[in-house]
Simulated assay, not measured.
Amino acid sequence: MMETKERQVLQKIQGARTVDGAGVHLVRVLDNRTVGPFDPFLMLDSFDSQNPDEYTAGFPLHPHRGIETISYVYNGKMVHKDSLGNEDSITDGEVQWMTAGSGILHEEQVPAVKNLLGVQLWLNLPAADKMAPPMYHSIKQADIPEISLPCGKLRLLAGSYNEHPGYQSRYLPLDYYDIHMNPHTTLTLDTDAYRSVILFTLVGNIRIGNETIAEKTAVNLSAGNTLTLDNEDTPAQVLYMSSTALHEPVAWGGPIVMNTQDELRKAFSELKNNTFLKEKTTYK
Rank of each mutant, 00 (worst) to 15 (best):
M258C: 03
E248W: 01
E270Y: 07
L271V: 10
G254Q: 11
N259P: 08
T260W: 06
K266Q: 15
N259W: 04
L202M: 13
E211H: 05
N210H: 06
T186Y: 09
N231S: 15
E270K: 11
T226D: 10
I179V: 14
V219P: 09
N259V: 09
G254V: 07
T201Y: 07
I256E: 00
Q237T: 09
L271Q: 03
T186G: 05
N220H: 14
S243M: 07
N225T: 01
A251Q: 04
T226L: 10
D178I: 10
R207D: 07
F200P: 11
T260K: 06
L229I: 02
T244S: 13
S243Q: 04
I213R: 00
D190E: 11
S222V: 02
V219Q: 04
Y176N: 14
T260E: 10
A214S: 15
L187V: 06
N274W: 08
N225I: 02
N182T: 13
N273D: 15
K216T: 11
H247E: 15
T188V: 12
D175C: 13
L189H: 12
V238S: 11
N231D: 06
G254W: 04
V250R: 02
P183T: 03
A218W: 05
S243D: 06
R195L: 06
T188Y: 10
I179S: 04
I206K: 01
R195A: 15
I198Y: 02
L202R: 07
L189V: 07
K216G: 06
G254K: 05
S196Q: 13
S196E: 13
L229S: 03
N225G: 01
P183F: 01
D175Y: 02
T260P: 11
L227V: 00
G204Q: 06
A193R: 01
K216Y: 03
N225K: 03
I208V: 12
A193C: 05
E232K: 11
D192P: 03
T260I: 09
S269F: 15
T217A: 09
T234K: 15
V257Q: 00
T244F: 10
A251S: 13
V238Q: 09
A218D: 05
E248D: 13
M258T: 03
D175V: 14
N220G: 09
L229P: 02
G254P: 04
N274D: 15
K216D: 06
I256A: 01
M258A: 02
T228R: 09
L189R: 08
A223T: 00
T191W: 13
I256Y: 00
L221K: 00
G224K: 00
Y194W: 12
N210R: 03
L239M: 14
N231V: 04
V238W: 08
T275W: 12
N182S: 15
L199K: 03
E211Y: 04
V219A: 07
D233Y: 09
A223E: 07
T201L: 06
T212N: 09
T226V: 08
V197A: 07
N182H: 14
S196N: 10
T212K: 13
T185A: 12
W252L: 12
A218M: 12
H184W: 10
H184M: 12
I208D: 05
R265P: 00
A223K: 00
G254N: 05
